[in-house]
């Protein structure tokens, strides 16, 4: 849209077009500023050592009549990009360490002596230490790996389960089809806290508590309804005649499904896969219900370790969030166009 209207003289339409474009850019820039503003703060916190979120510096704005245009510009620019972000490099944290002789541990047979020596070698804090600490002092890399493993396998299993069921919904009629479809859609409305205990009990009774496997199983089923809706919609758009032809050639329905329909439906499979992957990647509730061990936690759970009630290390938390945001953004930008076509194709038909 916003095409050149016909019948305008060239110069007039050019200037109008320029105006249009500058308005568009202005609006988009304003939107970007709103989007960036808290995110920039997260970045600036990620370099902090003090572990508080609040910035206590008030911006001393001059009273009415004295404020100049420059003051306004300064105020708003500081809001978007906290100055702290630039100061951080120049003022490396010099933590005041109270050097005191350890008064107690002089006993040479002390079993702790060798252990204490180990952590005595602590590198001095740098301005980027929060980022390096994530990987050297905490299991952050492990958590990301866990998340990847869990999300990939949950998405694979979820898509397989969804594809077969969606095929039955799209191609066959069977008694109770409407009821089953309605039930699947209804599951989307269950309030999340409701499922905590029973899902925990089920997974425990399958002897899969505190394992990757249990979490993968639970996650792959929770995204099932959405995936079925998407895939069913897409399967309906694939002409049935293709499979019928294969059936005439002596193909069983199962091999017709695997050999004919699935290869034709890669876009829809990608949508379902990406949707399951994303929801597993960002899931917190299921993981916190089913996983105990720190080595098994996905990043959503692991990162919460830095947010303790009275022991919050928001610097580390923010650094972790920034690290996570990068792959999440790539995933989101890449998957979004598939998800949208999934919505278009599948529709939501109860």
């Amino acid at each position: 849209m916003l095409l050149l209207p016909r019948g305008f003289s060239m110069s007039k339409s050019l200037s109008k077009r320029f105006l249009q474009l500058s308005v568009i850019h202005l609006l988009l820039t304003a939107a970007c500023i709103t989007a960036i503003f808290p995110v920039a703060r997260v970045v600036s916190i990620s370099f902090r050592n003090t572990d508080t979120v609040a910035t206590s510096d008030a911006f001393n704005f001059p009273p009415r009549g004295e404020a100049t245009f420059g003051d306004y510009v300064e105020f708003f620019s500081q809001a978007v990009i906290p100055y702290e972000l630039f100061e951080v490099k120049e003022t490396p944290d010099t933590t005041v360490t109270v050097v005191e002789e350890d008064p107690i541990l002089v006993d040479p047979d002390d079993p702790f002596a060798s252990l204490d020596e180990l952590d005595a070698v602590d590198a001095p804090r740098k301005w980027y230490s929060n980022y390096t600490d994530l990987f050297t002092k905490h299991l952050f890399a492990q958590w990301i790996y866990n998340s990847l493993v869990i999300s990939f396998s949950a998405a694979f299993i979820g898509v397989f389960l969804a594809a077969t069921a969606a095929y039955a919904f799209a191609r066959f009629s069977f008694p109770g089809k409407k009821l089953a479809g309605g039930f699947l859609f209804t599951t989307q409305m269950i309030p999340a806290p409701m499922m905590i205990i029973p899902v925990y009990l089920v997974v425990k009774s399958l002897n899969l508590g505190n394992t990757y496997a249990g979490l993968v199983l639970a996650m792959s089923v929770t995204t099932l309804p959405f995936s079925i809706m998407v895939l069913k919609g897409y399967f309906e758009t694939v002409p049935k005649s293709l499979e019928d032809a294969a059936r005439v050639d002596g193909c069983s329905p199962i091999s017709a499904f695997f050999r004919i329909l699935l290869p034709l439906s890669t876009p829809a499979l990608a949508i379902a896969f990406l949707f399951s992957f994303t929801s597993a990647w960002t899931d917190f509730l299921l993981a916190s219900t089913l996983i105990d061990d720190v080595e098994l936690r996905p990043w959503t759970l692991g990162i919460m370790e830095f947010s303790g009630n009275f022991d919050a290390r928001w610097g580390l938390f923010a650094a972790g969030s920034v690290v996570i945001a990068i792959p999440s953004m790539m995933l989101f930008l890449y998957s979004a166009k598939y998800v949208v076509s999934g919505l278009t194709l599948g529709g939501v038909k109860g």
């Binding site: 508080t52 609040a54 206590s56 933590t95 005041v96 109270v98 009275f310 919050a312």
Partner: peptide
Amino acid sequence: YDCAKSMFLSGKAPYHINGDWEANAMREK
């Protein structure tokens, strides 16, 4: 909590009521 702690840490308040769990962080600062 966060606001109070950061106010005291940045020298904007002379007195701060907080728990023993922050003693170490305060000393470091």
